Amino acid sequence: MSSYRQIYYHIVFRTHNGEKVLEQENIRSLFAYIMGIIQKRNCHLYRINAMEDHVHILCDLHPSVTLADLVRDVKASSSMWIKEHPSFPKFKGWAEGYGAFTCSYAEKDRVAAYIKGQQEHHKKFPFEEEYRKLLQEHGVEVDERYPLSNN
Rank of each mutant, 00 (worst) to 15 (best):
E52F: 11
C103L: 02
Q39E: 14
E96A: 12
K124L: 09
K108W: 00
H62W: 00
V21M: 03
S3R: 15
E23A: 13
Q6E: 15
R47W: 10
G93N: 06
M51T: 03
Y131D: 00
V142N: 01
D73T: 03
Q136W: 02
R28T: 09
C59Y: 01
S79D: 05
S64Q: 14
I7G: 05
S79V: 11
G36H: 11
I38N: 06
A112W: 00
Y146A: 01
K92D: 03
E84M: 13
L135P: 03
I115W: 04
E130T: 06
T15S: 11
N151M: 10
I48M: 08
E129H: 04
S78H: 12
S64W: 04
K83V: 07
P89W: 03
Y114A: 06
N49W: 06
H44L: 08
E19D: 14
K75N: 10
I48C: 08
R110K: 13
E141I: 12
R5H: 15
E23R: 14
Q118W: 06
T15A: 10
A32R: 14
K116W: 04
S87E: 07
N151V: 07
E96C: 07
S78G: 08
E144Y: 02
V142E: 07
Y131H: 05
S104R: 05
F88C: 06
P63G: 02
K133M: 06
N17G: 07
A106N: 06
T66A: 02
